[in-house]
Design a protein around this nucleic acid. Structure first.
Length: 643
RNA sequence: GCCGAUGUAACUCAGUUGGUAGAGUAGCUGAUUUGUAAUCAGCCUGUCGGGGGUUCGAGUCCCUUCAUCGGCUCCA
């Protein structure tokens, strides 16, 4: 008999050779029906594998990440099996599970495949699911494996196998389909009740642009049809919130082929919103001791040679600008930090002056590959809400905490309730690729970790993700429909102070290097506004939205009174517009709802007689009547609750 | 940059086998004077992304170029 320890700590006895599926059956029938794979001693394995000694066993279902990924990985095999039947002779690359779903990279040879073929492939997949053919694992020798795929003529698999060590190679077979795979997999395809092919895309073999481009088929699958339907609804919802669509509808920004691709143009409403965001952040930063600066949009090439950016990124940047007479060479500003370093260098500093915090809404220009441009999130000109903190090494932690305070304050004001942080540290295996001494790195890394602990911020530590010049902390927010976006960032930098020979005079009258901290709570105004649009679906927080109210006169007779009320409300600090059209009230309400204006004010005979306003809240409906003063109070209270 | 798809009115889209461009919305004009998500009527709207070609004739077929979209690669 052997002892099996379950996640709740209970221990059960089984005969040696018991399988995880047996264990599941012994616990409950429902669990046995839903279990997909098992984690035995921390390793995910198939349900049919015998367990021969004492072990800890966690039974994995759809609700476990590992269970889900096993499910999707097997689904990728199902996809490949279906495609091999429909398109004999195609060659397969890799087919992993991803965050949502899975893909398979396929060389379709001479077949022409398009999304019109999806239903056919989905149907074939369903047939294979119904066949309930078991999926079996077979360990093979390297020679055997090479031989199999040589016969099949699949050079991609051969390449994968040749990188593997003999004795570690396994095949998974289901009916006619055999694939090289480490596993683990489901017992058969039958739990895969719903599949949906999402799209086709080109993908280089092994991500190398010099190698052949395969066709990547993206798909998702679920154990229940209803879950697929829910997922499709979510996709629809994401589509509705697309900032490119809403940005156009609300007249926030535009692009022009004539101006150039990737160069966003902020329209009046969008500018209004952006400036409000900027003013808000400026006000907070002032409270935290920041000083606002303004620097030019270009800088001499030499500046960027000194900073190292030219060496690192020059080749991929916009080409330098040369003056015709003198031959001076300038670059469009790709980064604000070198300019800020020069501000620091403009005068000598004492340790008593530090930290110095220079902030700038600095517009930068970066050449992004044309295929990479995307709405406002990936552009060639954008404005960073940038600031650089120059501090002593012993101030790093304190400064981090202050920046985190700022970020948390603005996330709250913008109704990002869910966020987490990622701490990026050095690769402990390879410390040579980083600048700065061991000592300062360790100190800064510790400072970041401690700062997160003190702020009670859930943070994930990633080793090897730090920039070569310092560790960093990135903020990820979860939006209203559960998607994750990376926003703000805080980065420690030992490199630039060195390169620019920045110094301060310490207590002992010795010259010392300051530490530099780069930070941008929004990241870029463009990207942030895009995320904000997708998060709110265009229903911006009341303090931020371009128009807070719209007055809807019941008929044209009341326009004069509407105008009076409009200027009264504006004098009381609100902002809004009047719908003066000769339309019925129902129509005006509908249009205001679609424009996502938070408050609709209906004014007709009744209101004018009583000196009240009938208020309607966007998305909620009629709130009844109140005096103008009560209305302004209500708006102000609502704003105070978030700011 | 690479692979694939798309590009028709301000917006969303239709346009058969090649026969000379249409609907809704928006806009304008007029009527209506409206009570909590679409009042009615009339009018206007186009280099069919740009350039070249095939053809008696091209929105439609071919080439080329640009932009957008989905990915890949990249991302200070």
């Amino acid at each position: 008999m052997i002892n099996i320890t379950l996640p709740d700590g209970s221990v059960r006895q089984y005969e040696s050779g018991v399988t995880s599926l047996d264990v599941a059956k012994s616990i409950s029938e429902g669990l046995a029906r839903n279990v997909l794979a098992a984690k035995v001693n921390g390793k995910v394995t198939e349900l049919y594998r015998p367990i021969n000694e004492d072990a800890t066993v966690q039974l994995l279902t759809w609700n476990d990440e590992d269970g889900k990924h096993t499910f999707w990985h097997t689904s990728a095999h199902l996809l490949a099996a279906a495609i091999e039947e429909l398109y004999p002779g195609v060659k397969f690359g890799i087919g992993p599970s991803i965050e949502t779903g899975f893909y398979y990279d396929i060389d379709f040879m001479d077949y022409q495949v398009s999304s019109e073929d999806f239903p056919k492939i989905e149907k074939k997949m369903q047939e294979l699911v119904k066949a309930k053919t078991p999926i079996t694992r077979r360990e093979v020798t390297k020679a055997e494996a090479l031989d199999f795929f040589t016969q099949k003529g699949d050079e991609y698999k051969l390449e994968l196998i040749s990188a593997l060590e003999d004795g570690t190679i396994s095949f998974y077979e289901s009916g006619k389909f055999t694939d090289l795979c480490r596993g683990p997999h489901l017992v058969d395809f039958s739990p895969i009740k719903a599949v949906k092919l999402i799209n086709l895309a080109g993908a280089y073999w092994r991500g190398d642009e010099h190698r052949k481009q395969l066709t990547r088929v993206y798909a998702v699958s679920f154990p229940k049809k209803s879950e697929l339907d829910e997922y499709l609804v979510l996709l629809e919802e994401a589509k509705k919130r697309d900032h490119r669509k809403i940005g156009k509808e609300l007249g926030l920004y535009m692009f022009s082929e004539t101006v150039g691709k990737g160069l966003p143009i902020w329209l009046p409403k969008g500018t209004d919103l952006r400036l409000r965001l900027q003013n808000y952040l400026t006000k907070i930063q002032k409270q935290y001791g920041y000083q606002q600066v303004i620097t030019p949009h270009i800088g001499s090439k030499q500046l960027y040679e000194t900073s190292g950016h030219w060496d690192h990124y020059g080749a991929d940047s916009f080409q330098p600008i040369t003056t015709p007479e003198e031959g001076e060479v300038y670059l469009l500003k790709p980064m604000n930090c070198p300019h800020h370093c020069m501000i620091y260098k403009n005068e000598p500093h004492s340790y008593k002056d530090l930290p110095l915090r220079y902030a700038e809404f600095g517009t930068v220009y970066r050449y992004e590959q044309s295929g990479e441009l995307h709405g406002l999130t990936r552009v060639r000109s954008f404005t960073q809400d940038d600031a650089h903190i120059f501090c002593r090494p012993d101030q790093v932690k304190e400064e981090f905490i202050k920046v985190m305070d700022i970020i948390q304050t603005i996330f709250k004001a913008l109704s990002f309730e869910n966020f987490e942080a990622q701490i990026s540290l050095r690769d402990p295996e390879n410390k040579t690729k980083y600048v700065g001494s061991d000592e300062v790195w360790e100190k800064a890394e510790r400072a970041i970790i401690e700062a997160c602990e003190e702020k009670n911020l859930p943070a994930k530590v990633e080793y090897g993700e730090a920039a070569f010049y310092g560790p960093k902390l990135d903020f990820m927010v979860k939006d209203a429909i559960g998607r994750r976006w990376q926003l703000g960032t805080i980065q420690v930098d030992y490199n630039l102070p060195e390169r620019f020979q920045l110094e301060y005079i310490n207590k002992d009258n010795q010259k010392e290097r300051p530490v530099m901290i780069h930070r941008a709570p929004f990241g870029s105004m463009e990207r942030f506004v895009a995320v904000l649009i997708e998060h709110t679906g265009g229903k911006f927080p009341l303090w931020l939205t371009p128009d807070q109210f719209i007055i809807l006169p019941v008929s044209e007779k009341y326009i004069d009174q509407a105008k009076e009320m409009h200027s009264k409300l504006e004098q009381m600090g609100l902002r809004g517009v009047i719908d003066e059209r000769s339309e019925k009230i129902g129509r005006k309400i509908r249009d205001a709802e679609l424009k996502r204006i938070p408050y609709m004010i209906i004014m007709g005979e009744k209101e004018i007689g009583e000196g009240t306003l009938s208020i309607r809240r966007q998305g909620e409906g009629d709130l009844g009547s109140m005096t103008p003063e009560q209305f302004v109070d209500r708006v102000n209270t609502e704003i105070e609750n978030v700011l």
